[in-house]
Each structure stands twice: as C-alpha cells, then as structure tokens.
C-alpha cells in the first residue's frame, strides 16, 4: 500500500496534509488520520496498521480495523490512489 508518486505528505500541528501535486489538490486529515498516514508511509500493511493502532488506542481491534479500512477507502475514492501491495 502506498501513495501515488505525485502525492506529497507533510505532518502538521493538527494532522497531515496530502498534496496531490499533479492535480494540484490539497487534502487534510485530522490527527487520527495522520497516524494512519504515518503507518502507510512506513510501509505497514492494513493488518499491521490495525495491530499498531490497537496497541495504542483503547479500542477493540474490530473497531480499529473498520476505521482503518474506511480511511483507506476514503483515500482511494479521493484519488490519492493507494495501490495494494502484493
């Protein structure tokens, strides 16, 4: 899973900015989204992301998993274009 080559990610005080420099569109996430973005940037799989966030947050793993999948789908639907690793 990764961002498309033209998407630049930058951490900000209250989340992260995802700048699609090809379409010249700016997307923002909140702080929780930024944690998922960091995991994606680190090359974590959705499963590894869920495991990491479950360890950090006092939430059931299935809640975290649903949230991570929903967030990743949101990135895809916004054209920030994550691609699946094989």
């Amino acid at each position: 899973m990764k961002f498309t080559p033209n998407v630049k990610v930058r951490r900000e005080k209250r989340g992260s900015v995802l700048f699609d420099t090809l379409r010249e569109k700016v997307f923002v996430t909140n702080e929780t989204g930024a944690r998922i973005v960091e995991g994606i940037e680190a090359g974590l799989s959705p499963e590894a992301l869920v495991a990491q966030l479950s360890a950090e947050y006092d939430q059931p793993a299935e809640v975290i998993e649903a949230e991570v999948r929903r967030f990743i789908e949101s990135l895809r639907s916004n054209g920030i274009a994550l691609t699946e690793e094989t």
Binding site: V26, F27, V28, N30, T32, E67, V68
Partner: peptide, 24 residues
C-alpha cells in the same frame, strides 16, 4: 486518547495559519 472513529480525509483549502510552511 484520540478517538480512532474520527479519522478523516477531505479536500480542503487549508487555512494558512494552520500550516507550518507554504505548500508551493
């Protein structure tokens, strides 16, 4: 603790006061 149910991503012309540096 951060609420993971609040993760969002949205297209947004972010305010310049919320940015540490320019984007362009």
């Amino acid at each position: 603790m951060l609420d993971p149910a609040m993760s969002t991503v949205a297209e947004n012309p972010i305010g310049i006061d919320d940015l540490e540096s320019p984007l362009f």
